[in-house]
Design a binder for these strands. Structure first.
Length: 264
DNA sequence: GCAAAATGTCAAG
DNA sequence: TTGACCTTTTGCA
């Protein structure tokens, strides 16, 4: 429901589908992006781009709008007749209307600044041009636990706290394993799983990792309480083996795992 | 009702 | 490592 990489890529698609080629009305009901909104207002939307958790909206006249939702930001479609509340940082109106609230970042940037943002990001499994070899190379250089590397956006862009815990569980990898000790096969498994899972996340517009094989239901039909293997399930038994799910902090965020299914 | 938490990141100490 | 940022949602009285 909120933002890991799949959310941003889905937004990129939906915004493009809705606004592409149109002149947009841009306002900042909250006022904190008044200046920027007035610069975009009346310009044509020229597509968008997603890289990891970063979203870039392109407008005529080479204007690039950089958006990062952070932890609590939202960018959602609303009725074109709706009245914005005073927390709406940016409202875009084309075929329909979109409202951005609580973003960590919403600013117009130059093409040089755009390049700087992109350059700081690692490969994104949802981007065709991203390569597993880059992912593998940066893991090889790190002694830190794999659970820390997976949240580092310069190592792999788009993975967040839910996917991190879920991928490690699904592949039987303990979060504390040193990144550089993972085998090449394991690294590729992570990459492939991330690609498949993030794509599914874009399709469903939510995170569901539990497989049809494990649940007997199609991922899109799973209720929230059944959609994940370990995330936020401390005190509950492991879905696979019944052992208690463990929790600890890695990179300042809670991570969950099963000691039996993910031996060190 | 109100406090706490939330799928994120960065700067300060 | 901790706090700050920004808003909505959830959980507890």
């Amino acid at each position: 429901m909120v933002p890991e990489g799949h959310t941003i890529h889905r937004l990129s698609k939906d915004l493009t589908k809705d606004l592409d080629g149109r002149r947009v009305i841009a306002t900042s009901p909250q006022g904190r992006f008044e200046n920027g909104a007035s610069k975009i207002n009346g310009k044509a939307f020229n597509g968008s781009e997603a890289w990891g958790k970063h979203l870039f909206l392109m407008f005529s006249g080479n204007a690039i709008l950089h958006i990062h939702l952070g932890l609590i930001g939202k960018f959602r479609p609303v009725s074109i007749d709706s009245l914005p509340t005073d927390t709406v940082r940016l409202r875009l109106e084309g075929k329909s209307a979109w409202q951005l609230t609580g973003p960590q970042k919403c600013s117009l940037i130059s093409s040089d600044e755009y390049s700087l943002v992109i350059d700081a990001l690692g490969p994104d499994p949802l981007r065709r041009s991203s390569r597993v070899t880059d992912f593998e190379a940066s893991l090889k250089k790190r002694k830190t636990p794999i659970a820390i590397s997976l949240l580092d956006q310069s190592v792999i862009a788009g993975v967040g706290n839910v996917y991190r815990a879920e991928f490690l569980f699904m592949l039987g990898i303990h979060p504390n394993r040193p990144s550089c000790d993972l085998t090449s096969a394991e690294v590729r498994e992570i990459w492939e799983l991330a690609t498949q899972q993030l794509r599914q996340g874009v399709r469903l517009n939510r995170i569901v990792t539990v497989t049809e094989q494990d649940s007997g239901k199609k991922p899109g039909h799973l209720r929230r309480s059944k959609a994940l293997y370990v995330y936020k399930r401390e005190t509950l038994p492991c879905r696979r083996c019944g052992s208690p799910i463990r929790i600890a902090e890695f990179a300042g965020r809670s991570c969950w795992w099963c000691d039996r299914c993910q031996p060190i």
